[in-house]
Design a protein around this nucleic acid. Structure first.
Lengths: 173, 173
DNA sequence: CTTATTTCTTAACAATTGTTATCTTACCAC
DNA sequence: GTGGTAAGATAACAATTGTTAAGAAATAAG
């Protein structure tokens, strides 16, 4: 069952947030699990005052600080809307109940963790395998929507470089 | 229950391998799940003839190409002993049966996937957060055993740099 | 012990990125 | 519209890394 179909069976509350709204701040425990109906968001963390974006989320994806949510620990990451967003919101209580009582949800959750695991694995390998310039070109080819919808300095930190360096790479091409 | 205690209840076959033995070659499907009794191993992948080490494994840890094992797909990684190793070996058949019939094993496996997920997440963030020199110093502080037991060129590729650059970083300190 | 292989270091140069700063452009709020 | 903020481009210089090569040191094999 697709995520969207599954979500629709849960009758979750839908909430709209303006752009640049923080949904979870680094250091706090995650209380909500979100599903993106419309808009895009980013997960990021603070590093000596500079923020580093670790992941982007678009329509159709689930977003939460999984580690914080599953272990009930303070989150290493913040979650913030980039564009105005329309999200389905699941409370932690609902999440815990669903996980225990709904086998389909448990299967879906296990799959999500595994997928996120693959995602990090692939992303990590791209760092070991390629240089920033190649990572940019790969991103351009595989996810052009990111380049079009997301401000460049977020993309730069996602690629592991400065905004200045990304601008240079773009002009070199 | 600790991994070691749990393993001992399974009565797995113990096999000894010499150093530099390949247990799984990139492109093949993982058929075995290993538990390290003695020695150390590495997971690596080929990149245009150069090999990139992605993870080290020591006594007490479980090692397998999880993605390949769980999805029955060709592995993106190779697994190789670094030192002579004494390993407990679980066949895929045993694995599948245990996963279905032994709740404790399923719980342990879910935990392993989650831990591996955390590991990749942390490792990835260290790439976004720090430069090679700092990553080396962090590794030196957190896992000095790696620096002592593992050849430097493996560590270099694990840190995302060349062996030459690692040697330079070490001499700078 | 001797030889061969592997591992590690060092050097020189090219290429890339980081840093700082300035400037232009785009966008939002009033 | 106007002012203010954010985003992006560019330049100059410093610092780091990659590449190639050569040699020393350590390890393994016979």
């Amino acid at each position: 069952m697709s995520l969207i179909n599954f979500i629709s069976t849960l009758q979750l509350q839908e909430i709209t947030y303006p752009a640049k709204t923080t949904l979870l701040l680094e250091g706090n425990k995650a209380k909500f699990f979100y599903f993106v109906k419309e808009g895009c968001l980013r997960m990021w963390l603070n590093n000596d005052g500079k923020d580093i974006t670790t992941q982007f989320f678009f329509e159709g994806s689930a977003i939460a600080s999984l580690a914080s949510f599953l272990k009930d620990e303070p989150s290493d990451y913040s979650i913030e809307t980039i564009e105005p967003c329309s999200l389905f919101v699941m409370t932690k209580q609902d999440f815990i109940i669903l996980k225990k009582t709904n086998p389909a949800f448990k299967i879906w959750l296990d799959e999500l963790i595994l997928e996120r695991f693959y995602y990090y694995s692939k992303h990590l390998v791209s760092y070991l395998r390629t240089k920033p310039q190649q990572r940019y070109l790969d991103l351009l080819q595989k996810h052009p929507e990111i380049l079009q919808r997301i401000p460049q300095h977020y993309i730069a930190s996602y690629l592991g470089i400065t905004a200045v360096s990304l601008s240079r790479i773009r002009s070199r091409k």
